[in-house]
Design a protein around this nucleic acid. Structure first.
Ligand SMILES: NC(=O)c1ccc[n+]([C@@H]2O[C@H](COP(=O)([O-])OP(=O)(O)OC[C@H]3O[C@@H](n4cnc5c(N)ncnc54)[C@H](O)[C@@H]3O)[C@@H](O)[C@H]2O)c1
Ligand SMILES: NC(=O)c1ccc[n+]([C@@H]2O[C@H](COP(=O)([O-])OP(=O)(O)OC[C@H]3O[C@@H](n4cnc5c(N)ncnc54)[C@H](O)[C@@H]3O)[C@@H](O)[C@H]2O)c1
Lengths: 240, 240
DNA sequence: ATATTTATGTTAAATTAATCACAAACGGGG
DNA sequence: CCCCGTTTGTGATTAATTTAACATAAATAT
């Protein structure tokens, strides 16, 4: 039952499109474009103009009839929606291949995401710096996060270390976990948001699509033969 | 109009779930579990049993009434669907932070994705090896891909190099591009599949969700005041 | 000023995806 | 061999998302 003043929850589909709007509006700003219509946005972004208008109207009325949207105003509004008007503090947990690559990347700080510490359990790494960011012993993780009001933990530890680290994170003031491990994290009680990257899934999806045309042929044949994969009577699976 | 023998196109939502099924069935196999019902899968995966059955029925009838699914058979079928019954050859283009991290990762070859070459334009990197994989000059990229039947190009070059590399890739026999650059790639003519990782989008989505409760409050206030973001008469955006 | 054009916000329709519900098929036990 | 409990595959239903339509307001041209 919807309460009178209640806000309809914004769907994940919409949320996933917001970064695209944000990114492209940034480009337009850099080109000193002042106004843009949903139609023009549609051209580049590939979404329909109608969808763009509806997406934006989840958050407010940012446009004007007969004019369109003011690029820099809309950009600012979306930045507010995405919560990037203030900087975010991040820590990387696991200073391995991926953790170091992420720490070295400058693209995050451009959007206000600053990595202020790296944690590892390997004493040979502790004390070193990556891109001027110190590597600390993982024992200090909780203290550091709470002390420095860290918002986001970037998780790049090995598979089997994930659960233990996540448990420890739930006892901190962390707000979000950006998870690069293949582990499906589920946190019950706390209000910590988890965003999974799951690169393997992404690669498997690519593989599926490469394979798709072959697969379709196979499915067609199957359909013609009606049930080549069906199981005859007395099919025995169990090896007793 | 649907042709008689035509196959209904499988939706992206379904495809995105396939790797989850695959991953979890792999786990069950390792535990020597022989059979599993859609209900049991549902428990762990979080999708409804009904959805799981419907997803799988896009590709065939793999289960048996009163029994469920044979774990290893279903695993094999999904592997076929994902196109990972044969190995895939990959090359990494751009031996920087991310390219090196990916090349060092062993998790891909487990699923049959083998990185057989790395390409870079930096002569200081060419000739070195990462995880036993040689770094070649990027000039040799096209020849190498065609010669070695490379399926997938992993794109980890800087933003501004992306377009030129993608153009060059369209002149090869490559089947898929796994794109880690922030650039939105669109290839018109050719049958090359692009899978974008877009880490920044993922991070911004995380930020949105961290910010969400604050945003909802703001939207509520806005709704009560009716139109705090509306535009008064004679609002002038254009700075003539 | 006034008319014309443009392009929004919003409601309605269409499409797509998820869930429900159940007949039919199979395994296992007596 | 037959019955009982289980669980699939699938058509029907419901929910979610996307697209279309349009009244309305602002901008621009005349
Ligand atoms: N490298 C990639 O390209 C890639 C791709 C996909 C997924 N991943 C996933 O990302 C994670 C990291 O991958 P990687 O290649 O960087 O691995 P890695 O082995 O290079 O790095 C892991 C780092 O974590 C540290 N570590 C181990 N246990 C720890 C703990 N309890 N606390 C703090 N630090 C700890 C190790 O000392 C090491 O430095 C893995 O879960 C992997 O599956 C990596
Ligand atoms: N590192 C990250 O964590 C991260 C995160 C998100 C996105 N990205 C994106 O991934 C890409 C790579 O990032 P990075 O941090 O590894 O950058 P990087 O600068 O460390 O590496 C880029 C590499 O590409 C090579 N290169 C440049 N032009 C080339 C060309 N024409 N052909 C072949 N090689 C070429 C460079 O010599 C360098 O070795 C960038 O587009 C970046 O935006 C990186």
């Amino acid at each position: 039952m919807e309460q009178p003043g209640e806000i309809k929850k914004v769907s994940m589909a919409v949320i996933k499109r917001l970064p695209k709007y944000y990114k492209y509006l940034g480009e337009l700003m850099r080109k000193n474009v002042e106004r843009v219509s949903s139609q023009e946005l549609s051209k580049i972004l590939g979404f329909t103009a109608s969808q763009i208008r509806q997406d934006l109207n989840n958050f407010g009325e940012f446009g004007q009839q007969g004019y369109g949207y003011n690029v820099s105003q809309l950009y600012t509004e979306i930045a507010k929606i995405l919560g990037i008007t203030t900087n975010h503090k991040m820590v990387v947990i696991g200073a391995g291949n991926l953790g170091q690559a992420l720490a070295n990347y400058t693209g995050f700080s451009i959007h206000g995401f600053d990595i202020i510490g790296i944690f590892d359990k390997n004493p040979n790494l502790v004390g070193r710096k990556i891109n001027d960011i110190p590597i600390y012993p993982v024992e200090d993780m909780e203290y550091f996060i709470n002390k420095n009001n860290v918002d986001i933990a970037v998780l790049t530890v090995p598979r089997d270390e994930t659960e233990s680290i996540v448990n420890r994170l739930t006892n901190t003031a962390i707000r979000g976990i950006w998870n690069f491990t293949p582990v499906e994290i589920n946190i019950e009680d706390r209000d910590i948001v988890v965003e999974n990257v799951h690169l393997i899934d992404s690669l498997l999806t690519l593989s599926y699509r490469i394979n798709e045309s072959w697969l379709q042929e196979r499915l067609l044949k199957q359909k013609r033969k009606d049930k080549p994969f069906g199981h005859g009577k007395n099919t025995t699976y169990m090896v007793k």
